[in-house]
Amino acid sequence: MAMSNKPVVWLPFAAGGMLTALVLPGVMLLVLLVSLGVLPAESLGYERVRAFAANPLGGLAIFFLVVLAVWHAAHRLRMTLQDLGVRGRGARRVVAWLCYGLAGLGTIVLVVALLSV
């Protein structure tokens, strides 16, 4: 047995779990209320959101929230798939690569999007 490198995925899981728990419901509620027309549509108007995302602080805030949410979800999904029946070492490796790969892909697309906003 040797010290594992799991912290590399567990720390984002833990940070992402805390951040999503604290911030995501508020954001989701905001978007939902705009979608339902309860809050004015201008709240998510193109120029308003674009300005926020293009702003260095705003962009960083979006980046951290989305990236940590995605890596939190990826690690949890990986462990849950193991709970749900993925037992063999080979299969587990495939599952890990798929989960973190998906998160990595999302991260790249997000970075591209935020940089070209």
Partner: peptide, 10 residues
């Protein structure tokens, strides 16, 4: 819940 966190973020 991670499925829905991930889906929403996605």
């Amino acid at each position: 819940t991670c499925v829905f966190v991930g889906a929403y973020a996605g």
